[in-house]
Amino acid sequence: MKNNMLMDVVAEPNADRIFTGAAGVLTAVVVVAVIAVAVAFIIRAVNKKNKNNKGE
């Protein structure tokens, strides 16, 4: 019983930390992915325009 209570006390902050860490990692992944897609899109669009201009 004593052990269980101790486990509860110890486990809660750890779980919290793991959850916060996971949320942080998830946020970082989303941020990097969104930036990568946007930058790729910008590069593609500007290159396309450059090619068109050279063609003209």
Binding site: V30, V31, I35, A38, V39, F41
Partner: peptide
């Protein structure tokens, strides 16, 4: 991130 970056798309 989600409000600013997708504006390029």
């Amino acid at each position: 991130c989600l409000a600013f970056v997708p504006q390029a798309l």
